[in-house]
Amino acid sequence: MLKSTIPFLKIKPYYLFLFLLLFSSLCCKEKAKDDNRFITYQVNPEKQNIQMYWKNDNGELLKSLDRLNQNVQFKNEKLIFAMNGGMFEPDNAPKGLYIEDFKILKSTDTLQGNGNFYLQPNGVFYLTQNNQAGIVETKKFRYNKAIRYATQSGPMLITNGKINPIFEENSKNLNIRNGVGILENGDLIFVMSKKEVNFYTLAEFFKNSGCKEALYLDGYVSRTYLPEKNWIQKDGNFGVMIGVTTSAK
């Protein structure tokens, strides 16, 4: 009988574990891409123009995605993506910290209270003058003059790659929800559910997408403007909005 000249392949447990971990990660990311419960937009903050909006140059509240679009067009720009960007007061003022063009327009809210905003840990999403993005727990946020935009919201959905432990997988607290997360390559991913979901489901989607940090932005009022995916919502009654623009020329 001829003996095989191919040596028996032995895989050390450590490398097998790494392979299975990588395979599992790739499967989760593919599953997230095919999840039609969510509308998503991925953006490179170093190459694309991301801004936060609240009022126009005349100090008038923008409030809706339609008025934001009109404001952008007035400046000879094209809005390619927009989403409400955090909770707000009855007068449409941002709830908690809001920085626009390096100016602190609302201070950080570290009080205790009721509602989603005060679920812990609370967080801050920010963009720097060097087009770097960050999401950090509010208690760990440190202001510096390089921060161009920032919005505070809560709760954190993902921290250090882990789903917020206060969320219950089978919770019946369902709503349309949206949030923002950061991928390992530094890209941002904005997500809004098309249908009502609980916090855990939204957080799980961010985790499966590869986010190490993700922040909840708001609930049933959430809207998204994304023409490239034929998802155009122009209404709303918001405080802060987040938009991605390009030149209209």
Rank of each mutant, 00 (worst) to 15 (best):
P90S: 00
S193R: 11
K229H: 11
K249T: 06
Y225D: 04
F19H: 10
F23I: 14
V197E: 13
R37K: 15
F81I: 05
P94Q: 00
R67D: 13
M1A: 15
G186H: 00
K172E: 12
Q112V: 02
D101M: 03
F167D: 01
T138A: 08
S25T: 15
I242T: 07
K229A: 03
R142S: 13
V72N: 06
G86H: 09
Q152R: 09
G219L: 02
N175V: 02
N49M: 02
K10Y: 15
G239W: 01
R67A: 09
Y41I: 07
G210M: 04
M241H: 03
E204A: 12
E213M: 07
F206H: 01
G210I: 01
G115V: 04
T138C: 02
V240K: 03
L20F: 14
K195L: 15
G236E: 00
I232G: 06
Q48W: 00
G134K: 02
K47Y: 04
K172D: 11
S107G: 14
Y53Q: 12
K162D: 12
E204K: 11
I163H: 03
N178V: 05
Q129T: 14
W54Q: 03
N92C: 03
S107F: 12
I104D: 11
E169N: 10
Y15Q: 14
Y98T: 01
V191A: 06
Y200Q: 10
I166K: 13
L18V: 02
I166Q: 15
Q152P: 06
L79R: 04
N56D: 14
R142N: 08
T246L: 08
A133Y: 00
F199E: 11
T110M: 07
P90D: 05
L65E: 04
Q132I: 09
S25A: 14
I147G: 00
E100T: 05
A146G: 14
D187W: 06
P121N: 05
D35W: 07
D34G: 13
L105Q: 05
N71E: 10
N69H: 08
K207M: 03
I50M: 08
N116P: 02
W231R: 10
P13Q: 09
N185P: 01
M87D: 06
F102D: 02
V244L: 01
K234G: 01
N164V: 01
N69Q: 14
N58F: 12
G179W: 09
F38P: 03
K33P: 08
